[in-house]
Amino acid sequence: MHIPDSFIPLDHAIIYWVLALPFIIMSVKWAKNELDEMKVPILAALAAGIFAIQAMNIPIGMGTSGHMVGAALVAIVFGSPWAGVLVLTLVLLVQGFAFADGGITTMGANILNMGVVSGFVGYYTYSILRRGLSANIAAFAGAWLGLFISAITCTIQLWLAGTFPLVSGLIAMGTFHLIIGFIGEGLITSVAITAIAKSRPDLLEDDLNTRTERAETEAMA
């Protein structure tokens, strides 16, 4: 869903940069206030993994493919959507400048869609569902919805840009990203969270719900 330069006129692209900037600044503030030195290697490894997996396009039929975005996964692991914004910003910078994947002018829009929207929707959907569901199901649903909503946001930007018609654009983008979100985002995020919960349960302890659960278990013991 990386928007190339030519898809959005420069004046719109600047507005999206201006809108993205406070989120980027807040994500740096998150690091300054919350990023434990011990967790820097975790952040770097997740960022590298997300860059690599974004190059792995999965076929979804209809002559179309798609890949994971990863903001929800990072947000869940770090217990904050700001971590997702931060990692996606770093990944998009490298993709845009070194690989022409996503434009430079449109990077603000791409950061808003893939970092902010998919990170926030993914994380908060996960958090709400986590109250009643297991981590793997909550992660699946959060990541899936996060990707879908970010595709819808992207379509609206392209409609405002005069590039896409609204209704057929929403139908095409919505259909493709429901499928991409199911496999590419939901399943992979769920598998990764399950693997981390098994091998490194302490990593997920920032997660509010896990913390509550642990406190309850301890109180019962």
Binding site: M1, H2, N57, T64, S65, H67, A172, M173
Partner: peptide, 9 residues
């Protein structure tokens, strides 16, 4: 194959 955005375009 083209990705979701390219394919939609």
């Amino acid at each position: 194959d083209p990705d979701g955005l390219e394919s939609a375009a």
